[in-house]
Nucleic acid binder design. Structure first.
Lengths: 186, 186
DNA sequence: TAGGCCATGTAACCGGTTACATGATTAG
DNA sequence: CTAATCATGTAACCGGTTACATGGCCTA
């Protein structure tokens, strides 16, 4: 999924400015597709408008640059539906935490514990966020997706909370050998 | 996590060639960090060697280019441990399936069912793969990580299998209005 | 009064992919 | 006979990020 399609997706469900699209792609319920920056969104919107997929309406604001509110056109809707029909690539999960847990035996216990705390906090925050989305959405598809997300994230959080002791026990003893020495003895 | 660190991680646990690193980063237990291509791995290994993080040993093979087997040096180990101490970014989950499920009401039921089938197959394949890794690993950290992964993926698969009817019921009736028209009526 | 939020946009950069070049061996 | 696997490497490209430019309003 590229920024172009993301813009189409967001605008399918309502008008928005580039600034709002950025926010939604980072914090909102569109956060699991591509996290686009201004440097990619503004050019994408301009291109989309030139292609006839969007229309703009400018709303002047005293002292600020005018808000450029984009609306999707029929051509834009069609392009999005087409994109939805394309075979989706496999889901991608990239985790720096996983690298820490795989290498727990190379790290001091406190470092591993810290990584677990952070991951647990991230997980809880995301679950809370999804619960808020669940309360505000009217779309059945979004509601199903949110329940799915909450289920997966909760399973992850619960397992991590229940087994963190096992993971932390793998880490090197802070009083024992300094990190690296155990394996470095080749 | 960039390709450089990935190479260091893989070579920390044993010598390998660029070709083998590629395979591990796509299929192996390193698949959840960056999926690097040859075009990024070979230059990274050359740079790493120039930086004194790796040593190479060439193993000539009749008719094929010589295998260049890389080994990590003490400097390389230190750099990897340092990378492990850096604050890891939040975990990233990117899903085209999620876009389909969120927009289920814009798609024909068969399209949604197909996406569910594919996702279910991906999930099962990955669970099977992790079970195989579990049988072969000797590292306690890898073993913990694999159990964690199996737990999360199983929760995901089970919930999807249990609620797929709900999701498919959201899709547009194939006998009814063609996709797009329901919402397009603005 | 400092910092964050609003709001747009451009240009340089960069990390990665894709395609290319080369070629023997093995499995279907 | 074809396709995949092994095995290395380069060059063009591209989609995205980062940093920059501008500036008023609101909150701590």
């Amino acid at each position: 999924m590229n920024v172009r399609t993301l813009c189409l997706a967001i605008l399918y469900f309502g008008d928005a400015t580039g600034y709002e699209i950025k926010k939604m792609s980072v914090e909102g319920r569109y956060a699991h597709f591509v996290d686009a920056s201004f440097g990619s969104i503004y050019p994408a919107l301009a291109k989309l408008e030139a292609d006839g997929c969007l229309t703009v309406r400018e709303e002047p604001q005293p002292g600020k640059p005018a808000r450029k509110i984009y609306s999707i056109t029929e051509a834009g809707r069609q392009q999005f539906i087409e994109a939805l029909h394309e075979p989706p690539g496999p889901d991608v999960f990239r985790s720096a935490f996983l690298m820490v847990s795989m290498c727990a035996d190379l790290l001091p216990r406190e470092r591993v514990a810290q990584a677990v705390d952070e991951r647990l906090a991230d997980l809880s925050a995301e679950i809370e966020h999804l619960k808020q989305v669940a309360e505000t959405t009217e779309s059945a598809g979004v509601a199903w997706s949110v329940r799915y997300g909450i289920t997966c994230l909760t399973a992850s959080r619960d397992y991590l909370a229940a087994t963190r002791e096992d993971l932390e026990a793998i880490a090197v003893d802070p009083a024992g050998e300094p990190p690296g020495d155990t394996v470095a003895a080749e």
